[in-house]
Design a binder for these strands. Structure first.
Lengths: 210, 210
DNA sequence: CACCTTTTGACAGCTACTCTCATTTCATGG
DNA sequence: CCATGAAATGAGAGTAGCTGTCAAAAGGTG
């Protein structure tokens, strides 16, 4: 479990005086690297942006960049949603139909993601479409979300978390969400993401038979 | 040249005299690289196997390896199924229920994949579980399959190939198949893959609502 | 055989990423 | 306030995947 503490963005380091100077600096460095990366990527594209450039603009050494993020892709694909989704899932009444819960939680997650920084959300999905490495890494990270979903589904339906059925359900859902994001980005973010999500959930709810 | 033994592909170069020497050599080189890779990976693992070693054993230069395969991962994740699946899909009567068609075609694809070389199939899925890069690349390549599936679904259901609904259906299916493969490998290939596939299709058919 | 095209190998170069080690920066107890 | 230990950083070397170029070799053709 990657409980790396430090819920990322919505709070600035100054808001948490209870943390030591060391911790606050770490958060600041993390944000500096991310900010530098987003800026450079917007200026010159993902591939043309090197770690060295990122390090330079963030005013750290290249070594430090790798200490904070295992890969270059990871710098752009923040996944802070997992714990939020999980909490929201658990907060719903246990007897609520699963699809209702899912729909509700997804709406919440979208709202959260948008509020944070819409432009960043767009850049991220844009990169998912354009840069295969980013898309791949995103899928990888979503499979972690998948494990989490398995747990949630198992809790709700009383089935075994490790059963094929549960795992397939989770992965089908992940794939569908992924494709929804891609669709949104490919169409220039013109649709309301929430509406697309609803249509996606409709498809999953009724099965692929028709 | 140590190939010629256990040719992975159902056709050996010698069987196709209609091709020029040039074409036959290319096929042979391709197979040599694959064979060398599989052997080395089995001996010392994926990460420990370098392109240089592969080139050496296949008796070609490293440059040539990259000419035949864009990435190291691609050497192990053959995807020759797409055209077969597509052909089989088109060969089914147009009024057959979609899920029946899908089930039939998947069975065919599995039978084909197994007959080819069971051990290679196992090694491949094993690598998918163990090596993230391979798993990622596999997903990437499956999204190509996804495009193809969109076309098939659109043809069958009369919907727009580019519609969100069709794309979500395809991607959910892909995700589910992926997870089924992983499940199979993680459980030591003990189950019959065909049975797992049936259970997966059951889940998709009835929707994730329950 | 001569000529053209395709394939190959050798090599140089870039960059993501890893590892090690010395230096600096923060935390803490006296 | 300082001394000691722990953590974070920077510098540098090294690995390996991957790209590009160019000349040599092999295959095809008249």
């Amino acid at each position: 479990m990657n409980t790396m503490t430090a819920a990322p963005s919505p709070f600035s380091p100054a808001d948490r005086p209870q943390l030591g100077l060391r911790e606050r600096k770490k958060i600041k460095t993390r944000e500096a690297i991310r900010t530098a990366t987003y800026a450079l990527v917007k200026e010159q594209g993902y591939d043309a942006t090197t770690i060295e450039q990122i390090a330079e603009r963030a005013e750290v050494s290249p070594s430090t960049v790798f200490r904070y993020f295992p890969t270059k892709e990871d710098i752009v694909i923040t996944d802070e949603f997992d714990p939020i989704i999980m909490d929201e899932l658990r907060a719903r009444p246990a007897d609520e139909p699963w699809m209702v819960t899912l729909r509700y939680v997804m709406h919440k997650a979208i709202a959260y993601g948008m509020k944070e920084d819409e432009e960043v959300s767009r850049l991220r999905t844009h990169l998912m479409v354009q840069v295969p490495a980013v898309r791949s890494r995103m899928m990888e990270s979503m499979s972690v979300t998948g494990d989490m979903l398995c747990q949630a589904i198992a809790e709700r339906t009383g089935r075994d978390q490790e059963s094929l059925e549960v795992r397939v359900s989770a992965m089908a859902l992940i794939g569908a969400l992924m494709e929804t994001s891609l669709y949104w980005a490919e169409h220039g973010h013109r649709d309301e993401f929430k509406d697309l999500m609803d249509r996606t959930l409709d498809v999953l709810e009724h099965g692929l038979s028709e």
